[in-house]
C-alpha cells in the first residue's frame, strides 16, 4: 500500500516580505464565514469557516436531563461534545473520542458556562455539539465562536456571545490566528476566549515558550481579534432575521408581475 508522504515542513513560515505561508500579515485573521440556523432539527445551530476550518455547532435545549442524576436542582447543566470527523484531517482520525477531544470538550464548555443564564432552567440540560468537518488549526477557538452563536440562535438567554481566537509565535514573531502548519512548526500557541462587555476571559491556554512581554503583547492582539469576531457574530445572527424580513415583499412583487 502506498502511504502518502508526510506533509513537509515549510522552509519558512514568514517570507522576506514579512508575509506568512498563506499570504497573511502577522496581525491578520484568516477569512471567516459565519452562518446561523443551518440545521433544521437542532434548537440552534451555526457554521463557521475560518481559513480551511469548517465547523458545525448544534445546540439542543434546555431539555429534560437524561440520565436524571446529572441534573442540578438549581440550574441547567451544560454538556459539550467537541468531535473531529474521521475525514477532517489528512490521516484518518479514529471517530472514538480521544484524550484531546475530551479536553477540548471540557474547555469549550467552561468557556461558555459563565455567559449562559443557567439558573433560569433548573433540572435541565443544554447540549452543545461541535463537529469539526475540516480541521486547520485553531479549531477550539472557531468551535467556541460557532457554539456561542448556536446558543444565541437557540434563544437561550445568555449575557453575550463568546468570541475566541488564538495568537502564537512563529519564527520569533507574534502572529494572530495560527493555521495548522504554523501551530505545528511554530514556537508557541495561546488560544483566548473573550466575553467583551463583561471583560471576562473564559479560555486561556498556552503551549510553547514566550517571554512575559511577548505574552502580554500577544494576549492583547488576541483580545482585539476576539472583539472583531464578536462583531461578526452579531452581524451573522441578525442577518438571519434581516433576510427573512425582505422575503415577504419580494413574493408579493412576483405575484403582481404574474
Amino acid at each position: 500500500m502506498n502511504k502518502l508522504p508526510e506533509p513537509k515542513q515549510p522552509e519558512k513560515l514568514i517570507d522576506d516580505k514579512g508575509l506568512r505561508i498563506d499570504g497573511r500579515r502577522l496581525d491578520e485573521l484568516r477569512p471567516i464565514k459565519l452562518e446561523v440556523g443551518v440545521l433544521d432539527k437542532a434548537d440552534g445551530s451555526a457554521y463557521i469557516e475560518q481559513g480551511k476550518n469548517k465547523i458545525l455547532a448544534a445546540v439542543y435545549g434546555p431539555r429534560e436531563a437524561h440520565p436524571k442524576h446529572i441534573a442540578m436542582p438549581e440550574r441547567a447543566v451544560i454538556r459539550c461534545r467537541y468531535h473531529m470527523a474521521p475525514f477532517s484531517v489528512d490521516e484518518r482520525k479514529s471517530p472514538a473520542p480521544s484524550r484531546r477531544e475530551m479536553e477540548l470538550s471540557k474547555v469549550i464548555r467552561e468557556s461558555l458556562e459563565p455567559v449562559v443564564l443557567t439558573d433560569l432552567y433548573p433540572r435541565t440540560t443544554i447540549d452543545v455539539f461541535v463537529e469539526v468537518l475540516q480541521s486547520d488549526g485553531g479549531s477550539r477557538c472557531a468551535g467556541i465562536t460557532a457554539a456561542s452563536l448556536a446558543l444565541a440562535d437557540a434563544g437561550i438567554p445568555m449575557r453575550e456571545m463568546v468570541a475566541a481566537c488564538a495568537v502564537g509565535k512563529i519564527q520569533g514573531k507574534l502572529a494572530l490566528d495560527l493555521s495548522d502548519a504554523e501551530d505545528k512548526y511554530g514556537e508557541a500557541d495561546i488560544p483566548v476566549a473573550l466575553v467583551p462587555n463583561a471583560g471576562l476571559v473564559t479560555l486561556l491556554q498556552m503551549d510553547g515558550h514566550l517571554t512575559l512581554s511577548e505574552f502580554e503583547h500577544g494576549f492583547s492582539m488576541a483580545l482585539d481579534a476576539c472583539k472583531t469576531l464578536h462583531g461578526m457574530q452579531r452581524e451573522a445572527l441578525k442577518k438571519k432575521y434581516a433576510t427573512m424580513k425582505e422575503a415577504p415583499e419580494e413574493r408579493e412583487e412576483a405575484e403582481v408581475v404574474a
Binding site: D43, A152, D153, A154, G155, I156, E160, K238, Y241
Partner: peptide, 23 residues
C-alpha cells in the same frame, strides 16, 4: 443589555426584549 435574540420593546420606562426563538 439584552440576553436574547429578539425585538427591543419600550413600555414607558420599562425596557424588555421579546425573544424570537426559545422553547
Amino acid at each position: 443589555f439584552s440576553d436574547s435574540i429578539g425585538i427591543l420593546e419600550i413600555d414607558g420606562n420599562r425596557v424588555f426584549v421579546v425573544p424570537l426563538k426559545g422553547g
